[in-house]
Design a protein around this nucleic acid. Sequence first.
DNA 1: TTGAAAGCGCTAACAT
DNA 2: ATGTTAGCGCTTTCAA
Lengths: 373, 373
Amino acid sequence: MNDRAAERAAERAAERAPERAPDRAPDRAVTLRDVATHAGVSPRTVSNVVNGFAHVSPAMRAKVQASIEALRYKPNLLARSLRQGRTGHILLLVPDLTVAYFAELAHEVVERAGELGTTVMVDETGGDAERERAMLDAAAESSWVDGVLLSSLGLGGTDLAGMDLTCTDRRMPIVLLGERTAGSSLDHVGIDNVAAAYDATTHLIESGRTRVVALGGNGGPLDATSALRLEGFTRAMTAAGLATEGRHVGTPDYSRASARTAVAELMDGPEAPDALFCFSDDLAVGALRALYDRGIRVPTDVAIAGFDDAAVSAYLTPGLTTIRQDRSAIARGALEMLTERKAGRDLPPRDLAVSYELVVRESTSSAHVTRRS
Amino acid sequence: MNDRAAERAAERAAERAPERAPDRAPDRAVTLRDVATHAGVSPRTVSNVVNGFAHVSPAMRAKVQASIEALRYKPNLLARSLRQGRTGHILLLVPDLTVAYFAELAHEVVERAGELGTTVMVDETGGDAERERAMLDAAAESSWVDGVLLSSLGLGGTDLAGMDLTCTDRRMPIVLLGERTAGSSLDHVGIDNVAAAYDATTHLIESGRTRVVALGGNGGPLDATSALRLEGFTRAMTAAGLATEGRHVGTPDYSRASARTAVAELMDGPEAPDALFCFSDDLAVGALRALYDRGIRVPTDVAIAGFDDAAVSAYLTPGLTTIRQDRSAIARGALEMLTERKAGRDLPPRDLAVSYELVVRESTSSAHVTRRS
DNA sequence: TTGAAAGCGCTAACAT
DNA sequence: ATGTTAGCGCTTTCAA
């Protein structure tokens, strides 16, 4: 018996001494070994009890349980994970938590993961492609998580193809949320952005608008999501026999501020639109504000549709017509794919399309009359 | 040499063979031991190099570095943490990420922590006192994090006092964000809610309003934060010689929906107010919507002030007057206190008051005229 | 300056 | 059904 063991034995003796204050903090965390010694059994048995394995006699179980409670034993999860090779944690990478859509997505993931006994680590990429790549790379090597969910904007010029190597090389399960980026061979879950944009645009056209403008995606190479939404917009316009030239206005980013500026310029220009299809609710909020600044009525003068159905959108004045993605299904689907990927690493990359819904509110309702006394 | 060692030696031989595909995934992660053998040095030396310790000869360092790159070695952080007893992670507990204030707080914490090389695990308590207690308890035992930031609503009836024992018993550093709850002996960082509420209310009064109503906090026992904001409101009203009876309307929660309902009832009642002081921006949004539903003009008929300065508030129509807490200072301060607490566990509980600011926008601006053509 | 070896606390293969 | 023991991959005291 070495010194350390002797020291521990002394501590245990102290533990059993009746005059010892029972809730004083021990100098050292209680280990499974301590419990074993206290109960007079082997570590194996304690482990069995802790993990609820069968083949433990009731008497033994009770004895061990008593020791566990007496010593206030809590298993060291770090040690367990090191041994087992899995942590029960996943990483969620989003561009920016202050963007309502991502916060709500994170909320959904945290909730769904919680039901599965999984903890979520959230980190922000800033939407920067380079940083995204670096963080994903780091995560793929990390021993902290069993899998990664990446909500990527898929910004123009991003090439996740190079990441494939790293990611399949290391065996970290990864699922893309939102839009699959070009060339990527990763699993992916999201909605059909083209169809959704088509529906939103068609709704605007059917409510009698003809000068519809799509708003979002920067001027240069479009990010993957914007490209698809623009595609849906264009198809809808064309199908209705409307011209599409000059009907798309880019924004430097997805922020309210950018939209406010862009719409301000647009409305002051020669060809003011009578409807706006914004690629996000944040953009729509900025647009609403720009119109408010000018005293332009919504929807009387200009109709507005957004994308995402942020929680606040139903409470805007007027309420915002928008596309609601089934976030719960996205979260659930992504977690499921992660689990499957853990099992079968050699599956081909899969796509999961979840449902969406056009939510019509006052911002496009031609029947709506601004009630002012 | 046992079987495992022999197996590893074989793998290493394969590794050095020139015809071996260099980027095929190894069956097993590369360990520090592998690097040591590859470089022909002891694990100790590799560890020294990896951790950038001094007292390593340049030649040795170069040799080890080469092996590290050749084998693509990445240290197992789990093992390191187990050994060192710290993880470099903290836990942030917020009630609900879909509430803009908490999402923005989380954003701030994640950013500031990132600068310190700390990763943040975010989890949601749902604002439920029982769950809050349980999660904090679990976190205090957890080996995953070095500290916990708890953003508690301090709901009525919550007694965190019982938690003190657990928390000081275990030696997990914990800092409360927002409001210190009754009886708690934990560190705390937040603004002076009484003063802030006083300022907001006074602003409403000075802009000529007399029938001001405070909105928020449920009807029964108030949560800690609401109680303080109500206190500030009451003081301001009293100081201005205005009556306060019946001038507080509770809401079941902090949601937009609750506010909409409450304000609808209020405006349809006998004593309609000419100003509302809402205990959160979300409540203010609900209030704005209720007024919009009725065609009541803001600020002409009713002025509105909120609390938190959510990002969207500047873009509402009209823009919302509100209290802006210095969230960055909250995050920074909290992280600093966590660090200090790690060092000196026996410090007395400390309070850090950060600054706030009244941001005046159109919702209370008496000069504002709704521009409508 | 570097090597040898003892663990961090746990689980699981092997033995009884 | 329970005990014994060898690690998971790393850091770090002790020794050289």
